[in-house]
Amino acid sequence: MMIPILNISTQALFGQLLLGLINGAFYALLSLGLAVIFGMLNIVNFAHGALYMVGAFCAYFLLNLFGLGYWWALLIAPIVVGALGVVIERTMLQRLAGLDHLYGLLLTFGLALIIQGVFQNYFGSSGLPYAIPPELQGGSNLGFMYLPNYRGWVVVFSLVVCLATWFMIERTKLGAYLRAATENPSLVRAFGINVPLMITLTYGFGVGLAALAGVLAAPINQVRPLMGADFIIVVFAVVVIGGMGSIMGSVVTGFMLGVVEGMTKVFWPEASNTVVFVIMAVVLLIKPAGLFGRTA
């Protein structure tokens, strides 16, 4: 096995490592949103992939209909999708309170079908181009590798967003409300806090994170109606591996699996599609609650 490793140029190795980090950034942002939503609503949001796609389309529409570029999209798309999430929560998810959690999964699966189906009708299955913003075009030579600026930006910005989310939840008053309401919503409500409103806003925030990931992905992966459909399944596997109990856990697991997947592309390309699922199987055998999960 020594020779094939030596045959791979450091350029290719670091290139794949970077791609892995970028995928990891998306895994982290999406699984973070899923974990935040799951904590408050006890719902696995199957529509997460579809709303990630809607985020990317928001960026596309903002540019092509209103002439608003990438930076505006980064701000507006999460707000628009977050507002859509608020409507979904208030009109539908709220009615599932007290029912088996599986109904939330089924309902959001149905929503994903609707959203993806509508976009496929109007835009087919092919990708729409979305240009890298001028400020982030080009790249930098780091000596051992060439770093496209936009990709570097995606990794750094996602990390910042993840850490900010972690800080907000673990270190602020609002976060204390969230954590407390995750444990015992009725008591938190009896302290005078409007927990139903918090739940609604949490869902909006979680899907807003998905939309943000969608905007970040638009210049890399093109904008496609099905860009989130298969992706969300891998994110589910990431969530099973990390366990949904911990915010930092989802972030670390997301980045880690992205890198592992990237490395697999270098050494055993055929397995790169399935490596995350294989890791999931192994984790289930060794630590069923997930790497950072509390035993359910």
């Binding site: 204390a176 954590r179 407390a180 995750t182 444990e183 015992n184 009725s186 008591l187 409500r189 009896a190 302290f191 005078g192 806090i193 409007n194 927990v195």
Partner: peptide, 27 residues
């Protein structure tokens, strides 16, 4: 709803105490 009742000036210390494990004492 209970949040509005609480806002009138009623507070409950529940039997099981309801201390949150994911919060420290100060929180």
């Amino acid at each position: 709803s209970s949040d509005r009742i609480a806002r009138l000036g009623i507070a409950l210390c529940p039997e099981e105490r309801g201390i949150f494990s994911s919060l420290n004492v100060e929180e």
